[in-house]
């Protein structure tokens, strides 16, 4: 009888065994990644945009010093120096020589826009990254050890009330107020945004932790005798990574938009540094006379933010083992699609 049921069970499970890409080799995960990108065209677009934007930013930063080292004089991938006044005739419409035209100071708009890329992208990653680490840790603490009446419970309450206080100000207003106090400058404005940014991560993380914490699989681990610290890393953090990574990716774009707004208002980086908000500030009167200036900056912001958003959306599928299966083996029914009734 035992063998009868065993074979029955084997048959039952057999449907899910065949053609299993076992092991977690680098090659198979690359293949998987490729398949997921191919399956979802929007994710692919996002991925390409993010890669192009990031690589360009990197090249802008690293090419001059490297060429300086090797050749003795620095080269830049920018066609012309940015913010270079009177280099060319003013208000030139886009042409082959100047793909985005020239502006009211006679600078090449394309060079300006590309030169701003490292600053904006850097700020996006920096602010979102620090918020992720800081907010994520605080949220983890506040969510995981929230038993009322204990010391850690008190800490949890404190963190959350502090977060609430920060969240109760409109982001932009608070950031402006802080920059106004600290003064103008790259670091100062980054601190200002950061101060308004981390609370979102605390709230997100804590919410996720609270829900993961009550999942039956966490209770099951506890029943198996797994110590709390290991539950925290093995189950909670692991299940947190996906929502946080998705949120972070999309957030880079949001930071860039917010930061540009701040420097557009005139309290961000000094005007001598190429930055999209700064450029926008300079170009704001040209919307009718030389629209290409404004549209170039807007386009750059749009493309960057779109790229991160699309990638973030697709990341959800890439990181979730459940959707991985669908793509990895077309035609297999995923449990996610079954109604839970």
């Amino acid at each position: 009888m035992a063998s009868a049921t065993a074979s029955a069970a084997r048959a039952a499970a057999a449907g899910s065994v065949e053609e299993e890409p076992s092991g977690s080799g680098v090659r198979s995960s690359v293949v998987l990644f490729y398949r997921i990108l191919r399956a979802n065209i929007l994710t692919l677009v996002g991925f390409v945009l993010v890669v192009v934007v990031s690589v360009t930013a990197l090249l802008v930063v690293v090419v001059p010093p490297i060429t300086h080292l090797i050749l003795g004089h620095s080269l830049s991938i920018l066609p012309y120096p940015p913010l270079d006044t009177n280099a060319f005739p003013y208000y030139q419409a886009p042409s082959l020589a100047h793909p985005f035209g020239t502006d009211q100071n006679g600078a090449d708009v394309f060079s300006n826009v590309v030169a701003a890329l490292p600053t904006d992208l850097g700020i996006g990653f920096f602010v979102a990254g620090v918020s992720l680490v800081l907010g994520g840790l605080l949220g983890l603490v506040a969510g995981f050890w929230d038993t009322p009446g204990t010391l850690s419970g008190a800490a949890s309450v404190t963190i959350m009330r502090l977060t609430d206080i920060f969240l109760s100000f409109p982001t932009l207003v608070l950031a402006l107020a802080i920059t106004a106090t600290l003064g103008r400058g790259e670091i100062e404005s980054e601190i200002a945004i950061l101060a308004t940014w981390w609370p979102f991560y605390v709230r997100l993380t804590r919410g996720e932790v609270l829900s993961i914490k009550t999942q039956p699989y966490v209770i099951a681990a506890r029943a198996a005798g797994v110590p709390e610290s290991r539950i925290l890393f093995r189950h909670v953090v692991r299940n947190l990574l996906e929502p946080l990574a998705v949120y972070f990716t999309m957030d880079v774009g949001t930071v860039i938009v917010t930061y540009s707004t701040i420097s557009y208002i005139g309290v961000g980086v000094p005007a001598s540094i190429p930055e999209w908000g700064n450029l926008m500030y300079g170009y704001q009167d040209l919307l009718l006379t030389a629209p290409w200036t404004v549209w170039s900056v807007t386009g750059a912001i749009f493309v960057t933010v779109l790229g991160f958003s699309l990638l973030g959306d697709g990341l959800r599928d890439i990181l979730d083992p459940r959707s991985r299966r669908i793509v990895a083996s077309p035609g297999r029914q995923s449990s996610k699609l079954e109604p839970s009734s």
Partner: peptide, 16 residues
């Protein structure tokens, strides 16, 4: 009274 009679195997996948 002995093991329960059971039906071996499982329902086929509706897409295959």
């Amino acid at each position: 009274e002995g093991p329960l009679p059971s039906l071996a195997g499982s329902v086929p996948n509706l897409s295959r």
